[in-house]
């Protein structure tokens, strides 16, 4: 018999999961379950949507109504679900490639609409499932199977991108800071409007190995030693912040939510 939280929130018959030894997706999925319970969401009113990639496999293990969609389109499916049934709590679980490359357009438009969806990005800076290709969040200069001489692209800062596009709650947590991750995910779930939580994750099998980051323990220790809370980061120079992970909540604002506004349109058009 596994731990009570796991028994309550996961399809234990599908466990152990397929993720590599030390992959932080497992502890993040547990943290999300804790955040869902802390936020008091009911199973019958909650749906979890994922795209494609290592992270998106999570929906196979979560004991909720879940939908495993096509690559990059988790937010498109989630938008449809939220519009059809605005009373549902819609959570999107996605990865860095899924959300910022293939689904980049869906991300910015979900942000712009401020639709009531919680988007959790398991950002491990690489395409793990397909063999370690660089993603839009692979840091410049880092290595991947498709960047054997170093990546020349600049990397996306997902919360910053989301905030600029109009998301009303954006945050970053780390796989090391798992207690903070639970608290921030709970706030993101409770937020009315579009919320994005970027979870700095570790991929020991591809990103770690390609960039000689050491074993999983070293990767987590690196996160511990290189995380800077957003308040402290505000007082630091660009040079000092080079290679650091800025953590915390970047914005938490109120703005009319999309399905509420759509409901008003229906009323105005005489549809109710």
């Amino acid at each position: 018999m596994p731990a009570k939280l796991i028994e309550r929130e996961m399809r234990t018959e599908n466990l152990p999961h397929i993720w590599c030894p030390g992959c932080s997706h497992g502890s993040t999925m547990r943290a999300l379950c804790q955040a869902i319970e802390n936020a008091g969401l009911e199973r019958k009113n909650t749906i979890i949507v994922s795209g494609i990639g290592c992270s998106s496999r999570a929906v196979g293990y979560l004991n909720f109504d879940t939908i495993h969609t096509t690559h990059g389109r988790a937010l498109a499916f989630a938008t449809g679900i939220k519009l059809a049934k605005p009373q549902l709590n819609v959570i999107v679980l996605t990865g860095d490639g899924d959300i910022s490359a293939i689904g980049g357009n869906h991300l910015i438009h979900a942000c712009r609409r401020n639709i009531g969806i919680t988007c959790i990005v398991l950002n491990n800076n690489i395409y793990g499932m397909t063999g370690g290709q660089y993603s839009p969040t692979t840091p410049s200069g880092d290595y991947a199977t498709t960047a054997p001489y170093g990546n020349i692209d600049r990397d996306f800062d997902i919360p910053l991108l989301a905030k600029s596009a109009g998301a009303t709650f954006t945050a970053r947590v780390t796989a090391y800071g798992i207690n903070e991750a639970i608290k921030v995910m709970e706030r993101a779930i409770r937020h009315k409007g579009f919320s994005v939580v970027d979870v700095a994750s570790i991929c020991p099998s591809y990103y770690g190995r390609k960039n000689k980051k050491g074993d999983v323990v070293k990767m987590l220790q690196w996160q511990r030693d290189n995380s800077v809370p957003v308040k402290a980061a505000e007082k630091m120079s660009k040079e000092e912040l080079q290679g650091k992970i800025i953590t915390g909540i970047f914005n938490d604002e109120q703005y009319p939510e999309y399905t509420d506004e759509y409901e008003k349109i229906i009323e105005r058009a005489g549809g109710r």
């Binding site: 731990a3 030894p21 992959c23 932080s24 502890s27 547990r30 943290a31 798992i178």
Partner: peptide, 13 residues
Amino acid sequence: CELRCPDYAIWLE
């Protein structure tokens, strides 16, 4: 250990 284990293989009960 329970918080960090990626595989839910250790916990307090």
